[in-house]
Amino acid sequence: MAAVSPILVTKGLSRSFGGLKAVDDVDFEMAPGEIRALIGPNGAGKTTFVSLVCGRVEPTGGTIIFDGEDVTRLAAHQRVRRGIAYTFQITSVFGNLTAWDNVALAVQRHAGKGPRGARGLREGVQEALLRTGLAGRQGVLAANLAYGHQRLLEVAMGLALKPRLLILDEPTQGLSDGEIDGFVGLVRDIARDATVLLIEHNMDVVMRLADRITVLNAGRILAEGAPDAIRADAEVQQAYLGAPADG
């Protein structure tokens, strides 16, 4: 992967809350187009790490470089405009708006103005809803959607931003097996034109999707490599599961 320039680089990235080092001196790189899984026990700093990348949390040290540009000091919304999208761990769709309006919020900023913008908006929303299988529910208030559909709507908003890096924070949490299968297909589809960074507890999903896996423990990178190598890594098993990582 050394040939292509990385889309995301962090150098010495750190964040502490009080005395606790949630993220501790992390050097991290992602190649364009890959699906990377970020795993680790609870409290390992996964969510803090991606929050630093997307700008929801300010670092106490280190730099973040996105596509060759230092974005460390940029506000969250400016990073989103440069192509970093984040889907929330806790579903946070706009409950009092329809599914259509939820997605429209993600599309309208880059749809342009005037009649052409209006058409671009309709098409963009339609596409995102179709890809996530929500087209039939566009008029439903988000709060009234089933939980699995709310998660999909969250993803639809993420991909409607047309991101170059899509960060998914525990997207399959609370989904049924059937929904998870559909979801795996969706992520593969998204990864054809975006880089995906995935926080995931379901090891089956991780193994099916990830090109590479980064293991975080106590705010530091414990191991990084291809799924098979990580699966075989005794240290990871001990830190993460205390048992074979087949979950």
Binding site: V80, Y86, N96, A104, L105, A106, R109, L161
Partner: peptide
């Protein structure tokens, strides 16, 4: 208008709106 939609989005969930790229 799209602007009105953003206003309502801020009312519903400002943090989420920011993460859709809006300078809230």
């Amino acid at each position: 208008s799209p602007y009105g939609r953003v206003l309502v989005a801020i009312r519903e969930n400002e943090e989420r709106t920011r993460m859709l790229g809006y300078d809230t």
